[in-house]
Design a binder for these strands. Sequence first.
RNA 1: GUCUCCUUCGUCUAGUGGUUAGGACACCGGGUUUUCAUCCCGGCAACACGAGUUCGACUCUCGUAGGAGAUGCCA
Length: 493
Amino acid sequence: MSVRVRYAPSPTGLQHIGGVRTALFNYFYAKSQGGDFLLRVEDTDRERYSEESLDDLYQTLNWLDIKWDEGPIVGGQYGPYIQSERFDLYQKYAKMLVDNDMAYYCYCTPERLEKVREEQKANKSSTQGYDRHCSNLSAEERAEYEKQGIKPVIRLRVPTEGKTTFHDVLMGDITRKNKDVSPDPILLKSDGFPTYHLANVVDDHLMGITHIMRAQEWIPSGPLHIILYKAFGWEPPIYCHLPMVMGKDGQKLSKRHGSTSVRDFREKGYLPEALMNYVTLVGWSYDESTEFFSKEELEKVFDINKIHKAPGIFDYKKLDWFNGQYIRKLSDEELKEKLIPYLVRASFINEEITDEQNAILNQLIPCVKPRLKVLSDVVGLSSFLFTKPEIADKEMFIAKKMDLQSTTKALIKAYEILKTGLDKDLPFEEIENEISNLATEMDVKVNGVFTPLRVALTSSNVSLPMNDTVNLLGKEECYKRIERAIEMLEGEL
RNA sequence: GUCUCCUUCGUCUAGUGGUUAGGACACCGGGUUUUCAUCCCGGCAACACGAGUUCGACUCUCGUAGGAGAUGCCA
């Protein structure tokens, strides 16, 4: 039997790291087995639904280059894989259950349910959830409610005796007493939309899903779903509950831990390859040492049995490291293309790049490459080039064991050396040597003379190598900046 | 509260009865370097605890503790 799995997100927010990892595991499993990966949109929560989320779902999968074999048609056209488009179907199946007395109409108001919950809590009652108030209404009672215009929900009749077991590929058998299964959960809401439980089971069955890979937070409803399958007389698929992705404090990964949406990572300048590589390594591993995997490799090598059981903490620093590694693997040309949007956004350059700018970019890229953790870092690293920086505070010019006077003197002399050297077109190495010699002559550390030079040119203590900085800025601009700095320092004397 | 699941370095993990418990990130040190990075070398650091089973347990069993998740007309 060919494997068919699905990713079935609900468009109620931006695609989350955890969700995407589920998608990836499903996708890689399908591909590794030569099976199909389906995408299904579970938009049954009309209150939380948003168009933006749906859009984000497509963008995210697209960015990661995850293609579904079956799913909604992109481009405004709704397909058969969007639950809101299958509205009538769920009605039909819910009513079928009612007809077989596997489910029943319930007219309880949300207020009453809330009250029941509160009382249970107050009494520290061990029984919890719905009190099955409507489970045995007579035809007359129902008619009375209907007359009042109350729109009923449909609830599943969960057995109170016995127990239900399901098998999980990772966890083994999981058994729950039926009395501990959430009592008579709602299948069809009063607005006619199905809840997750119904829609999920109906669709997975109709779509011929063979394996359900979803987050471990679903384990407790596993038995419930088995009961539902039984009520329909269907064979349940194979389950595989995935360990969850947590934040540093061990709680479910959320905003307070940092970025959680793929869109955030994309905007900051993480490469899809890096994010994908790292994310699939949370809760899965191939062997004792391999950690770089391309999407194509994962499609071959992914093994469901090597998924971990315990939840994993999302390590932002390791992601950064991966991203740096992937950035360094890029050719200069590739990196340039990826960096341009960030430079444009920072208003450093325009979309249409002049030949002159292009030449500068070609110089800049290799300088910046070993220094990028994320693509957006390029902005900070190159702002000295594209903007006229505020002249730095005088303290910044002064290196350790130096004072204002010696610093000013060093800068003036270093400037002379630099200027004559550049004007004579000496190799930069030679100029640097001379400047180093100057330090020796002045009996100060090399830092004492290079620091003021660096700060004069970039207004920062941290910069690209001097050679690159000078090349990038051009002679004339360098002179201007150094003269400006000297003037400022002399004014302070 | 109740139910379910989980437990190897700080983090991600390898390991399936006999290993100096391996790798990676982070961290610390060193080298390259005028700064910041990159790169290279080295170091620190773990089997939650307690009972069994066994000649022998990180590996098997049972308890304990800790953590997480579920307990919605959300998924």
